[in-house]
């Protein structure tokens, strides 16, 4: 790999632009492709349509793939998507465990909580914290299909507006802390905001796999586990 290509790759990742590294496995020749499959580095490289197409597919599946070209070369396509994102609503004790776990798993994490006593840098070192009201925070963060939203405040005033916005987004995982009884009441409130049964079924409530978790860290493990299961297996609530 040429240093110029490595530097362009790092710049794209820093700017959260999707790119693909295409490598000829015979001689190591490489092209950095943008999200559309066009050459970025070297800028004058010719990209065969099959390679551009395979690059777009590698990004869509978020999976590296080797391709055999018609002229018998093998090319490996390494996708670099912007990181998965996790939006945690509630800067609570469980969040203090969940945030570093999710960061280790590769998530770009944001915490939303308007209560400044909770949402402090001291409690969440080196973490992006938004002290907006949760609906405004969600609007600012604009969850996409590679985003998970987890509400942990236990307070309908804070959780409901976040869930209302999350349900209007393509977020791949939406979860809310609270007992089954709490969740039934939550569904009823969100239904009054106009969300149908199918939409409400997207919410994993109670949040997390049933591991018998007790401590905040254990509950974070159960949420992290369920989020991973939904990401990798598409398991529904």
């Amino acid at each position: 790999m040429k240093a110029t290509l490595l530097d362009a790759l790092v710049a794209a990742r820093t700017e959260k632009r999707a790119v693909v590294v295409a490598t000829d496995l015979a001689d190591g020749d490489q092209i950095l492709l943008d999200g559309d499959g066009a050459a970025l580095v070297p800028g004058d490289a010719t990209v065969p349509p099959a390679i551009a197409q395979a690059g777009r597919e590698a990004l869509a599946c978020d999976r590296g793939a080797a391709l055999e070209t018609p002229d018998g070369r093998r090319v490996f396509l390494a996708p670099h998507n912007p990181p998965l994102r996790l939006i945690v609503v509630g800067a609570v004790h469980i969040s203090q465990a969940l945030v570093p776990m999710a960061a280790l798993a590769g998530y770009d994490v944001s915490v939303v909580d308007p209560r400044r006593a909770f949402a402090s840098d001291a409690r969440f070192p080196a973490t992006r914290i938004l002290t907006d009201w949760p609906d405004e925070g969600l609007d600012a963060l604009a969850p996409d299909a590679r985003t998970a939203v987890v509400t942990l405040t236990h307070d309908p005033k804070l959780d409901d507006p976040a869930l209302d916005r999350a349900l209007a987004s393509p977020a791949f995982y939406i979860a809310a802390l609270g007992s089954r009884k709490t969740h039934a009441a939550r569904r009823a409130r969100l239904a009054r905001l106009g969300h149908g049964e199918t939409a409400l079924d997207r919410i994993h409530g109670p949040a997390g796999l049933a591991l018998g978790a007790v401590s905040p860290a254990e509950i974070a493990v159960s949420v992290m586990a369920e989020m991973t299961q939904v990401l990798r297996q598409g398991t529904v609530a």
Binding site: T14, P83, L104, R128, T131
Partner: peptide
């Protein structure tokens, strides 16, 4: 909104 503090690159960060 507070000024977002960008954390270090997530995951393995091999290219970085």
């Amino acid at each position: 909104m507070t000024t977002p503090t960008d954390a270090a690159p997530a995951g393995d960060a091999i290219p970085e």
